[in-house]
Write a protein that binds this DNA or RNA. Structure first.
Lengths: 354, 354
DNA sequence: CTTAGCACTCTTCTATCTGGAGTGCTAAAG
DNA sequence: CTTTAGCACTCCAGATAGAAGAGTGCTAAG
């Protein structure tokens, strides 16, 4: 089952040529390309062998060979050379990462766009809470006698606010009371622990307050919920049209609507990456989702800190430039991890200079 | 130049048949379709006339006729019947509009998605300040001795916050001082009026505060800036592949990348709508952008209140079902206006029940 | 003004043909 | 046992030709 050195060289040449040209590769072309000093007939024998073992495929009897998923897998595992990014490219990524970015959602969205632009494939990005978040503190700010602002801060230091208006008047002492009540009853609780029961009890303790407690707490719950399962951001779906395998509009359409609409599945797809830390490559049928069976996905995960993890990935034809894409993706993921990891500049802290 | 009744009827039949089938329409088909009691030969004469006057076009000598942009224009202006939405459809829209929506950005994005799904065309949505916004108030909340939350509220009642961390300690009285200082010096100023000079003066008055004033004010400026020129949200770009005019991948790609990347132009395109209040239809070459010359755009604007206006629109082939799209779009736009207009439930106020 | 008839045009579809690329096999050479 | 040259064979891709069909424009008659 172990392949000879020459066969590996040939396989690698087939993969790389096919990645570049999207055309089946023939024995004659390989004779020159692979840098071997054997004739095309010899290569033909090896090709037949590789085909028999399932590393290559033939579109039809008299065409050249193209790599099978199994062939790509071997290539990715053993034959592929790690790609170095050029200085230019790292610079471009660094610049893009250091734009002013405030909200987590926007950083993620932006990162997805950047990757898509960088690789010329559709990309997606998402963040997810790997642990249960809680509220760290509540603040209520009186605006005028009929409205106030609620500010909640999670234990991951995300702050959100919302303006509330009320039919009846409200006084500063009332609001103070509510604030302490909220802070004693609901701080440190996870989403599941914020039961309606708890709310009713607190509401009762607050006395005549028009259900204010529940309003503010439901807002807090929304915030927690949103942070723990945030949306999947996709970008650059139109890039799939760049590639000849999607000249068939039907195919392109199927993939595109999967990418741009079926967010829940896109999420399911990204889950494998949440476990490990390095770059993951899923080739064609290795994907769980049916729509991706003849598509490859490259994934990298990054650490947001404070109990959140993110995944950023790229979708493309199985004939994808894995080396380049993986390199770029992991560079970006590292960059994001560093960005979030800076202790004195967590998300939500300004740069000194604008 | 005035067309006879029969010619109008024929033109209308051509447009509607072509909208439905995307195929050139012949005289014989029209004889039945238009409900006229004349023969195909008569219709042929009229068709020749309509073609000569530029209302119709012939792909080639022996094909049927298709409407020209001029023909569509006449159809839209005079011949098109206002479409009524079915109860089902209005219900669907209403439901979608009344989801929990908090942030302006998200409402807009959501509305775009909905319209795209509703019409099966790519859609976009944007909001823009039509007047200059100002900050109504600042609040600073001390979190711990090294960090605080800044909450700013604009005069359009949008509230945003940001967490600041600092190298040095901070006391409650200091923060109080800063708050009053911010509220006296920067409230009621537009973006242009928040000059570096002003900031320097306030900074001076504050004394030794590590440039905190400018940090908070730059944040406020970011908020104003973002509100006044918010992004264009596009959705459903993949829908263009549904339509036979974009079977040609090259064409589809051109339009898609225009839609998904060139936001500044998408904005330019929406500007005409900001002036009027009703639904606007731009047919093919009536569009300013080159990329849209053989594409139609239907736009509706809605009122967000507090000096903001929004535009929501749909992009598709000139063969678009204008009646349906316009009806749906203006219904959604009305719905959005109402949503934002509700005095007791402005953006940022919760529903009573979750 | 309307209609029937008819020749004409142009596209689209299908079938057929051909050139070329690449294979697999065989037999000879290393 | 591996490598190589030679050659017949397969299959696709692109070109060409013919036939069918749809629709027109024109003419002449109602």
């Amino acid at each position: 089952m172990e392949l000879t050195e020459r066969k590996k060289k040939i396989l690698r040449a087939v993969v790389e040529s096919y990645i570049e040209t999207a055309e089946p590769v023939g024995s004659k072309a390989l004779a020159e390309l692979a840098g071997l000093k054997v004739s095309s007939a010899t290569i033909r024998n090896d090709l037949a062998d590789l085909t028999e073992h399932g590393y290559l495929e033939q579109p039809h009897t008299s065409a050249g060979r193209i790599p099978s998923p199994k062939g790509y897998r071997l290539y990715v595992n053993e034959l592929m050379e790690e790609q170095r990014l050029s200085l230019e490219e790292t610079k471009q990524i660094n610049d893009a990462l250091h734009l002013k970015m405030r909200e987590l959602d926007k950083v993620i969205d932006q990162a997805g766009r950047m990757v898509s632009q960088l690789t010329n494939y559709p990309a997606f990005a998402l963040a997810e809470g790997v642990r249960r978040l809680t509220i760290r503190r509540f603040d209520l700010i009186l605006v005028d006698c009929a409205s106030f602002i609620a500010v909640v801060m999670t234990d991951s230091s995300v702050v959100k606010n919302k303006l509330f208006r009320l039919p009846a008047d409200l006084s500063e002492p009332q609001l103070q009371l509510l604030t302490t009540l909220l802070n004693t009853a609901f701080v440190g609780k996870t989403l599941d622990q914020l039961t309606p029961e708890l709310m009713r009890m607190a509401e009762h303790a607050a006395g005549s307050s028009y259900g204010l407690i529940s309003l503010v707490v439901s807002f807090a719950m929304e915030v927690l919920d949103e942070l723990e399962n945030s949306a999947v951001h996709t970008a650059g779906a139109s890039h799939i049209l760049d590639h000849p395998e999607y000249q068939d509009v039907g195919k392109a359409q199927k993939l595109m609507s999967y990418l741009s609409e079926d967010r829940s599945l896109a999420q399911a797809l990204a889950l494998p990456a949440l476990s490990g830390d390095d770059t993951k490559i899923l080739i064609g049928p290795e994907n769980v989702a049916d729509e991706l069976k003849d598509t490859s996905v490259v994934l990298a995960s990054y650490d947001i800190g404070d109990g959140m993890k993110g995944v950023i990935g790229v979708v493309g034809p199985t004939r994808m430039d894995y080396a380049k894409v993986a390199a770029k993706l992991s560079y970006v993921a590292d960059g994001l991890s560093k960005l979030f990891g800076q202790p004195e500049l967590p998300p939500g802290t300004p740069e000194k200079e604008e």
